[in-house]
Simulated scan of single mutants.
Amino acid sequence: MITKLTGFKGEIIWNTTKPNEQPRKLLDICRAEKEFGFKAEIPFEEGLRKTIERYGKYKS
């Protein structure tokens, strides 16, 4: 999704011989909604697009 939103045309090659330090987690926001009323207002892809745009403004 990031490559699509940024227009990246290169090739991503994963080195599977090394750990990537990214533990796999599945989050369930039902508890956040139940406990303190959190509900996402922006779809994930739109939020990611906005984050990329904002980052681009500060990149030197």
Rank of each mutant, 00 (worst) to 15 (best):
E41A: 12
G10C: 07
L27W: 08
F36N: 09
Y55P: 00
W14A: 15
E46S: 04
N20Q: 06
R54G: 08
D28E: 06
L26D: 12
F36M: 10
E46G: 02
T17R: 10
I13M: 07
T6S: 11
F8I: 07
T51D: 05
L27K: 06
F44Q: 05
F36W: 13
G47W: 04
E33A: 09
N15D: 15
I42V: 15
F38A: 00
G37Q: 07
K4E: 11
I29S: 12
P23V: 03
E53R: 04
E45H: 01
E45I: 00
Y58R: 05
T17M: 08
K39R: 15
Y55V: 12
R24A: 13
N15I: 07
E41T: 12
I13Y: 02
A32C: 11
P19V: 10
G47H: 05
E41G: 15
W14K: 14
K4R: 15
K39P: 01
E41W: 04
P43A: 10
M1K: 06
A40Q: 10
N20K: 06
L27V: 07
N15E: 14
W14V: 15
M1H: 07
K39A: 14
I29F: 13
K39M: 13
E53Y: 00
M1V: 09
Q22W: 11
K39S: 14
I52D: 00
F38Q: 02
T3W: 07
K9E: 14
L5Y: 02
E35Y: 04
L26E: 14
F8P: 08
E21K: 11
P19H: 10
E35M: 09
F36S: 07
K57Q: 12
G56R: 15
I13H: 04
I29V: 12
W14R: 15
A40L: 08
L26C: 10
K25N: 12
G7Q: 01
A40N: 07
G7L: 03
D28F: 04
P43F: 00
P23L: 03
E45A: 00
S60E: 00
T6C: 07
D28N: 12
R31S: 12
Y55M: 11
E11K: 15
W14T: 13
K25H: 14
T6D: 00
A32E: 10
I12H: 02
G10H: 06
K39V: 12
K50Q: 15
K50A: 11
T16D: 13
Q22I: 14
E41S: 11
K57T: 10
E45P: 01
Q22C: 14
L48F: 03
D28Y: 05
K59I: 05
F36V: 07
E11Y: 03
L26H: 14
K39T: 11
E41P: 06
K18P: 01
K18I: 13
T6Y: 01
F38D: 02
G56C: 14
I13V: 14
Y55C: 09
G37M: 01
I29Q: 08
E33V: 06
T16K: 15
T6R: 00
K39I: 10
K57S: 03
E35C: 04
K34G: 04
I2S: 05
N15A: 08
E35I: 08
E21N: 15
T3A: 12
M1E: 09
T3N: 11
K25S: 12
